[in-house]
Amino acid sequence: MPQLPVEPAKAVSEILSRYHGDPARMIEILQDLQEIYRYLPKEVIEEVSHQTEIPINRIYHIATFYKAFHLEPRGETIITVCTGTACHVRGSFRTLDLLSERLGVKPNETSGDLKYTLETVGCVGACALGPIVIINGKYYGHMTPDRMDRVLKRMGIIEKYS
């Protein structure tokens, strides 16, 4: 288990004060915490339960209900490939295969060194730009394996892996 960058007790109390300790804002509280840790570590969820006096089974229910919350560590660089219908018919799976090979990570997994997370998503609502790939929040449209390779090279990802 890697050391957490911020002490859970401190992070949780600071974020709770933002919401005046109102447990009805649980989703916002968890979102803010996820921003710090990139995922929701067990210790953090336990700490939220401790400080809000909301039973841990409720918080765990919320954290597992929404796809936006992650309970497993995620990589520094998050690469999202859209596999929605429009992107799929234009061959997004080829780009996905390439990314998987280059990064050494299976779709929807994180590399062992916590550098990369490769994930797929149903549709991002930018079908006109499909196939679309999102790298740390930046959108790359009309993606083909060739263009993907160039992007990876530009970002300094590729030398390490090829």
């Binding site: 039973p55 841990i56 089974n57 409720r58 765990y60 229910h61 597992t64 209900f65």
Partner: peptide, 13 residues
């Protein structure tokens, strides 16, 4: 949750 008050189990996903 309500009778025992243990909150030991819950829904996931």
């Amino acid at each position: 949750d309500e009778v025992v008050g243990a909150h030991a189990i819950g829904f996931r996903g």
